[in-house]
Design a protein around this nucleic acid. Structure first.
Length: 402
RNA sequence: GGGUAGGUGGUCGAGUGGUUAAUGGCACCAGACUGUAAAUCUGGCGACGAGAGUCUACGAUGGUUCGAAUCCAUCCCUGCCCA
């Protein structure tokens, strides 16, 4: 069996292990069932899940079997890790809808068919049935509050306030692992490093009840060179769902990343061989742009398919280089000829005031000409070939159609 | 339950009766420079209005006042200490 863990380490995914040596040995000798938890709190995954799915995909390709746990039970309350507020409660229907949408996206990374087909489980199926007294007696007695408080994730919460419920979350997630271990022989839980405490909780719980074969592994959160989370856009998160973030925007996000982050992005978010990545990232000057182009293309291809990636690239070429295909940039059908309204409709400003400021500062261009009049009304002559090109700043374009 | 400190715009955090749409930092947006990069510099950053201006906002509600984020009352929420 290929040493997939080593490959993951080489590509820079891994943050920490619970039992590194044992885990590596286990992975060498058998096909391991491992689980990854995803909270169905939105109807689309975002970039935070991306790395997780990449790791799952690498593992599956190496012959191991993924169990995707959607947190239908825990989503009704929300994971408090690193957050200041408890999430809004969600109804069962919303969650079920989200689960279906999420499964579609997961399918791009891991397969639900074949020998080591992934399975998808919902912790609502067992958590909702739990009896409080039984749970306290069987599970609650195995957790030490002293130890939990020593964990970083609780330590800083101690200053801002922490409810009993939030501490209980750890027990639930630990119980999930125990359940999957017993029912599916699941030996490993993977998750982002923010899940570390919850993961150890499960690993230790399983060991306390007598099994020796539970492991935890966390991967790095995708951060830029300043240590901030990547995947934020002006409109919020960078979603994997094309209705929420268009493939063009998605492509542009990766095309515009910092020089210093290209290599990381290529290793973590594409399947390109490391040698090729090294080669692409060898330059310090503008030649690094080729690496960014490849990164944007490959990542977009992974999420939206090759066809969309080609379109996004063509649109980018049309706007930034020469040639290329103007068909594929974001476009809108005009509802008003008033420039301010058009800017808002194109999503370039959220109020007329903002739109005015943009014009006043020379940030709006119509067909390559600066717009200077905030009262400008689009005319027939602006639509030369049936469309007009509106641009905000240097990089944000929108095709306007009548 | 008692004591105490608080709840301000995307966020952090000033402001303690009028000149306060509310200092400043961060985030964000635009301009210049550039490589669709970074750093830097400049400008902007509640809504509506062409503008004068109008409206909405400082946990909630009610009150005092010509005038309140600022004072009073009640309520809700949070931290800390004591039980």
């Amino acid at each position: 069996m290929a040493d997939v863990i080593e490959e993951l380490e080489k590509r820079g995914y891994i943050e920490q292990f619970t039992h590194e040596k044992e885990l590596k040995e286990t992975f060498k000798k058998e096909s391991v069932r491992f689980y990854l938890g995803i909270d169905p709190t939105a109807d689309s995954l975002h970039i935070g899940h991306f790395i997780a799915l990449m790791v799952a995909s690498h593992l599956q390709k190496a012959g191991h079997k993924p169990i995707i746990l959607v947190g239908g039970g825990t989503a009704t309350i929300g994971d408090p890790s690193g957050k200041t507020d408890i999430r809004k409660m969600m109804t069962r229907e919303t969650i079920d809808g989200n689960v279906a949408a999420i499964k579609k996206q997961i399918e791009k990374f891991i397969t639900f068919e074949g020998e080591n087909a992934a399975i998808i489980v919902n912790n609502a199926d067992w958590l909702l049935k739990l009896n409080y007294i039984d749970f306290m007696r069987d599970i609650g007695t195995l957790f030490s509050v002293n130890r939990m408080l020593a964990a970083d994730c609780y330590k800083n919460r101690l200053e801002t306030g922490l409810t009993f419920f939030e501490m209980g979350y750890m027990l639930l997630q630990s119980y999930d692992f125990l359940y999957l271990h017993d029912k599916y022989n699941c030996k490993l839980q993977i998750g982002g490093n923010d899940q570390w405490s919850n993961i150890i909780g499960g690993v230790e719980l399983i060991r306390k009840v007598g099994a020796e074969d539970s492991f935890g592994m966390t991967f790095k959160l995708l951060t830029n060179k300043d240590g901030k989370k990547m995947g934020k856009t002006e409109k919020g998160a960078l979603w994997l769902n094309p209705e929420k973030t268009s493939p063009y925007e998605f492509y542009q996000y990766w095309r515009n990343i910092d020089d210093a982050d290209v290599k990381k992005v290529l290793s973590l978010l594409t399947f390109l061989p490391m040698e090729e990545i090294e080669k692409l990232c060898a330059y310090q000057d503008e030649r690094i742009n080729e690496a960014k182009r490849v990164a944007a293309f490959e990542i977009t291809k992974l999420i939206h398919g090759e066809e969309e990636a080609i379109k996004a690239e063509a649109a980018a070429k049309a706007l930034f280089g020469n040639g290329g295909d103007i068909e594929n940039m974001p476009s809108i059908k005009l509802e008003s000829e008033n420039i301010l309204d058009v800017i808002i409709q194109a999503g370039m400003a959220s109020s007329k005031g903002q739109a005015k400021t943009l014009i006043a500062q020379g940030g709006i261009t119509l067909n390559d000409e600066k717009v200077t009049d905030i009262a400008y009304k689009l005319e027939e002559k602006d639509f030369k070939d049936g469309y007009a090109i509106l641009r905000k700043g240097k990089k944000i374009f929108c095709k306007l159609e009548k």
